[in-house]
Amino acid sequence: MRPIARPGEPDKRRLRRDLLVVRNRLTADDLRETSAALAGRALELPELAGAGTVAAYVSVGSEPGTLALLDALRDRGVRVLLPVLLPDNDLDWGTYEGESSLAPVRHGGRMTLLEPAGERLGPDAVTTADAVLLPGLAVDARGMRLGRGGGSYDRVLARLERAGAHPALVVLLYGSEIVEHVPEEPHDRPVQAVVTPSGVRRFGPAR
Rank of each mutant, 00 (worst) to 15 (best):
R2M: 06
I4K: 12
G8M: 04
E9T: 09
P10R: 06
P10Q: 05
R14P: 10
R14V: 13
L15T: 09
R16F: 03
D18V: 11
L20G: 11
V22L: 13
R25N: 15
L26A: 05
T27S: 07
A28F: 14
A28Q: 15
D29V: 15
L31S: 03
L31H: 00
T34R: 14
T34S: 05
S35K: 14
S35E: 08
A37T: 03
A37L: 11
L43E: 07
E44R: 14
P46H: 00
A49H: 10
G50T: 10
A51Y: 08
G52V: 10
T53G: 07
T53R: 10
T53K: 15
T53Q: 07
V54M: 00
V54Q: 02
V54T: 01
A55T: 06
A56V: 03
A56H: 03
A56E: 04
Y57G: 14
V58G: 07
V58W: 10
S62E: 14
S62W: 13
S62G: 15
T66C: 15
A68Y: 03
L70Y: 06
D71S: 11
D71Y: 04
R76K: 01
G77N: 07
G77R: 00
V80N: 00
V84S: 05
V84L: 10
L85G: 13
L86M: 02
L86D: 02
L86A: 15
N89G: 11
L91D: 12
L91C: 02
D92Q: 04
D92F: 06
W93D: 05
G94S: 07
Y96F: 13
E99N: 05
E99T: 14
S100C: 10
L102M: 02
A103R: 09
P104M: 08
G109A: 03
G109W: 12
M111T: 15
M111N: 04
L113I: 09
L114S: 04
E115M: 00
A117Q: 06
A117P: 04
A117N: 00
G118H: 15
E119T: 12
L121K: 09
D124T: 13
A125E: 02
V126I: 07
T128P: 15
V132D: 02
L134W: 09
L137V: 09
L137P: 11
D140I: 01
D140H: 01
A141G: 11
G143T: 03
M144T: 15
M144S: 13
R145N: 04
L146T: 00
L146N: 05
G147A: 04
G149N: 04
G151K: 14
S152N: 12
Y153L: 01
D154L: 06
V156K: 12
R159M: 00
R162L: 01
R162I: 05
G164F: 03
A168K: 07
L169H: 01
V171H: 06
V171I: 05
L172H: 05
L173M: 01
L173A: 00
L173T: 00
Y174P: 04
S176F: 13
I178D: 14
I178W: 09
V179T: 10
E180D: 14
H181R: 14
P183W: 14
E184F: 05
E184S: 06
P186D: 03
H187K: 07
D188Q: 06
D188H: 07
R189P: 13
V191A: 11
V194I: 02
V194D: 03
V195D: 02
G199I: 00
V200P: 00
F203H: 00
G204N: 10
